[in-house]
Nucleic acid binder design. Structure first.
Length: 274
DNA sequence: ATCCAGGAGTGAC
DNA sequence: GTCACTCCTGGA
C-alpha cells in the first residue's frame, strides 16, 4: 500500500467531475476505480490518499492514471487574480485532476453520454462491460468486468446494445467500435497527430461531434487545451465571459473547464472534501 | 403531462 | 452555413 499526500488531489471531486464513470465511493472516503481491466481501491483522508496496491503497480499504472506528475497548483496560479469567478471555482475544485484514461474507453463513454444523464450513463457502461468486457477478479476474489476491447464491442448487434439500454446511441457505438477494430480508424495515428487536428479527426467517427471529440481528446489523449462545451459550460461562459473564454488560458483551458463544471454542478457544500 | 438531460445526424433552405 | 426535427430513456 502506498501513501500519497497532495493538496491538489481529491478523489471525491474527481468522481464528481464527470470524467470517470467507473469510480464509486463504497465507504466514506473509500473509492473503487476500474480502468480498462484494472481495479483499484483507494482511501482518502484530507490531503492524503492511501492506494491499496503495491509499489510496482502504483508506479507503472496508477501514478500515471491520476496524472500525479503534473503540478496542478502551478496551473491554478496562472489564473488571473482579478477573475474572482475562476479563482473561486479553481479553489473549490482544486482536487480535480485530468485522469489519463484509455482513448477507446473515452470515445465509447462519451458517445453514450450524449443527451443522457449520469446515473444512466453509468448503467449503460456497466451493461456493456458485463456483456462484452473480460471477467476479472479483485485481489479479494470479487468479480468485476473490464472495459470491452474494440473487437468485442464490434461483435455486438444493434439489438444487443439496445438491451444494454444505449437507445439510439447503440448504432454509433457499433459503427465506431467496428471502424476502430478493423483498422479503418487508427487510434495510434490520433496519438501522434497535431492536437487541433486530432479533435477534427475524431469527429469523422459516426456519432462523434465537437463535444464528444473534445471529451475524448481531454480525457483520452490528455490534450489539456480541449474544452468540451455542454449546456452548463455554455451558460457559465455566456454569463461570466460575454466576450468568450479568455484566449490566454488556451493551453490548459480543459483543466479550467473542469473547475467551472464542478462549480456549476456542485455549488456550495455538496461534494466537498471527504 | 411535457420537458429536458453533459449531442449528433439528416435534410431543407 | 444555419435551422428544425428526430433519435431511446428515465427522472423531475
Amino acid at each position: 500500500m502506498i501513501v500519497y499526500t497532495d493538496p491538489y488531489f481529491n478523489l471525491k471531486q474527481i468522481a464528481l467531475s464527470g470524467q470517470c464513470f467507473r469510480m464509486t465511493e463504497t465507504g466514506s472516503g473509500v473509492f473503487e476505480i476500474i480502468a480498462k481491466e484494472r481495479w483499484l481501491r483507494a482511501k482518502q483522508c484530507r490531503d492524503t490518499v492511501v492506494f491499496f496496491c503495491g509499489r510496482q503497480e502504483f508506479e507503472s499504472c496508477w501514478k500515471q492514471y491520476f496524472d500525479l506528475e503534473t503540478d496542478y497548483g502551478a496551473i491554478i496560479r496562472k489564473i488571473d487574480s482579478s477573475d474572482a469567478y475562476l479563482c473561486r471555482a479553481a479553489q473549490r475544485g482544486k482536487g480535480i485532476r485530468i485522469l489519463r484514461q484509455d482513448l477507446f474507453e473515452m470515445i465509447i463513454t462519451f458517445l453514450i453520454s450524449q443527451q443522457n444523464n449520469i446515473p444512466r450513463i453509468r448503467r449503460c457502461i456497466e451493461n456493456i462491460c458485463r456483456r462484452y468486457g473480460r471477467l476479472c477478479r479483485t485481489p479479494e476474489g470479487r468479480e468485476y468486468s473490464g472495459f470491452p476491447k474494440p473487437e468485442a464491442l464490434a461483435g455486438a448487434s444493434e439489438q444487443e446494445l439496445l438491451e444494454c439500454n444505449l437507445g439510439y446511441r447503440g448504432k454509433y457505438v457499433l459503427d465506431t467500435a467496428a471502424r476502430i477494430a478493423d483498422g479503418r480508424f487508427s487510434l495510434e495515428e490520433l496519438q501522434k497527430m497535431d492536437k487541433a487536428k486530432a479533435q477534427e479527426k475524431l469527429t469523422e467517427l459516426y456519432g462523434v461531434g465537437k463535444k464528444v471529440a473534445a471529451c475524448a481528446a481531454l480525457f483520452g489523449l490528455h490534450h489539456l487545451e480541449a474544452f468540451p462545451v455542454d449546456t452548463h459550460i455554455r451558460q457559465a461562459v455566456e454569463k461570466h465571459y460575454p466576450g468568450g473564454f479568455p484566449e490566454k488560458y488556451k493551453e490548459f483551458q480543459g483543466v479550467l473547464q473542469q473547475y467551472i463544471f464542478y462549480e456549476e454542478l456542485f455549488p456550495e457544500n455538496t461534494g466537498d472534501l471527504g
